[in-house]
Design a protein around this nucleic acid. Structure first.
Lengths: 166, 166
DNA sequence: TCGCCAACTGAGACGGCGTCTCAACTCTCA
DNA sequence: TGAGAGTTGAGACGCCGTCTCAGTTGGCGA
């Protein structure tokens, strides 16, 4: 699948346009992000690079993510945890997230009616929207079948999927 | 307005029920939260207490907020920044937020149709929702009139209203 | 092709937010 | 009134993300 290469080109175009350089570190990161991850954390990415013995510092990971966000190739999202997650943008499809607080699984969805309704709400409030963020927390189908009861909505801590996974 | 006292009683009930104690520090914090603040940060609350020469440690502030969240009297919310905000819960009314990225102002809204639509989306995905979080970022009416253009949606950093305010 | 220089990198210091630890203290209730 | 569970403050700690700075490198112009 040569789509990763296409993303590298896309990134290169952006960098060039900004008078910035395409370095081997940036290539490696784009390749990693677009070939395997979907939702990921900065630290997770750093770990993956270390695993593959590609020496890239934390500073560079964060700096590259910043550029990718600016170039609109990656989005920074809140998934109910106390730090950022990132996801790569395929096409331009905006979407929101259902987050299972039992297994940490993230389900994406897009709903035109929801988008329209939000715009209508903004109009009513004379608010000019640029972006939005919706997370619905709850229990996914497979966890529900396993008899997991949903956590109370007033829980203090959100589940931390990454840490559970380790 | 004796409503603050009512909240203290409500908190006491919760604490008693859990076998916990109502201390002077907890009373002072509840009084502060429910008499003046609406959206606030933990650190802001700590500062207010210091201003009033009420000696309360950071640990106690966080511990009390945790209890207030558990008792459903306070909610922890994301307002597009990289740390938590809190808001007190009046009645049981759930609401969402419009956040102005220019002035930092937060507008609340509640929309029944939006709530119903979310439930319908969850049903379609066989997802059992317990809670949700919607922030719409953009520019409020008064900032728009002042000719402020909205920030690009791909911006890396969310504006940090509190820091700007200082 | 070469050389220059702005851009980039890594290492580690730094800072903010939130949590944890532990010894001292204080409610509560028997 | 005394025991013991719960609470507190001070400060250490940890995580996430940013910044600094000296050394390195990509890429453009000659």
């Amino acid at each position: 699948m040569p789509s990763v290469e296409r993303e590298i080109t896309r990134f290169q175009d952006y960098l060039q346009q900004q008078g910035l350089k395409l370095t081997s570190e940036r290539i490696a990161l784009v390749r990693e992000i677009f070939s395997t991850h979907y939702h990921f954390e900065a630290d997770e990415l750093l770990g993956k690079m270390k695993e593959k013995s590609v020496k890239i510092s934390r500073a560079t990971v964060y700096r590259t993510l910043e550029l990718l966000v600016k170039s609109n190739m990656v989005r920074r999202v809140h998934l109910g945890e106390d730090h950022y997650h990132y996801e790569h943008v395929s096409g331009n499809s905006h979407h929101d997230h259902l987050i299972c607080t039992t297994c940490g699984n993230v389900i994406e969805f897009h709903d035109e009616q929801l988008e329209r309704l939000q715009i209508a709400i903004c109009e009513k409030k004379k608010f000019t929207p640029t972006f939005h963020n919706l997370q619905i927390l709850g229990v996914c189908d497979s966890c529900r079948r396993k008899g997991q009861t949903p956590d109370a909505p007033d829980r203090v801590k959100m589940i931390q999927p990454t840490k559970l996974r380790k």
